[in-house]
Amino acid sequence: MTTNYHISSYCKIENNTLQLNGATVLEMNDVLFPEFIKNASKTIGLEYPKFFKMDNLSKLAFLGAEAILKDNIDLENENDIALVFANKSSSLDTDVKYQDSISDSENYFPSPAVFVYTLPNICVGEISIKHQLKTENAFFVFDDFKPDFMSNYASYLLESGKTQKVLCGWVEYYKNEYKAFVYLVEKSGTIAHDKQNIQTLYNQ
C-alpha cells in the first residue's frame, strides 16, 4: 500500500541502550533500569523535576518521546501531534507495587502517588503535559507489538485530518524488563510509514 506519510524520527530504549534514529546515544553496562533511565535523562539534557516522580513505565515512555520531541517541537506555536501508545503489560509493574501496599492489613497505607500510575495511559498524559499537546490520544494493550494496528490507527488520524503528526510508541515495562520503540509520523521524512518499515525498525 502506498502512503503519503513518513517516519521522520525514531527512538529505541532497551538493554541499557538509548538509540536515536539508529545511532547509539547512551549505552551502559550492568545497571538496573532506574539508574539507566536517570542517566539517559541527563544525556538528552532533560531538566524536569516531575520526571523523578513518575513510575518506571512513564519514565520509559516519557524519555522515548522526549528524545524525539525535543528537536521536533515548535515552542512558539501549538503542536498538533497526536499520541498513540501501546504495550503488553499495561501498568502491571506498578499494579503489583500498589497491591503490596494494601495486602497487609497491619501495614495498610495505600499510596495515591503510586495508585495514579496504575493506569497505562498516564504516561501519555505526562508527555502531553510536558509539550502541551492538546491532541488526540489513546493507549492500547496487545500481547505483542502490532505494527499493522499501529499503522492503521495513526494513518486514520492523519488522513481524517484529526491531526498533523502522530507520535507512536510501544512502551513495555515489567519487572526490569523493558523496551520502548517510539516514532514520529508526518508528511516529511524518508522512511515510508508502512507496517513493514515499522516492524523492521522495531526488530533492528
Binding site: 497505607f109 495505600p110 499510596s111 495515591p112 502517588a113 495514579v116
Partner: peptide, 9 residues
C-alpha cells in the same frame, strides 16, 4: 495535589 495526598499518608 498528589503530593498533598501523599503527605496525608
Amino acid at each position: 495535589s498528589i503530593d498533598a495526598l501523599e503527605l496525608i499518608v
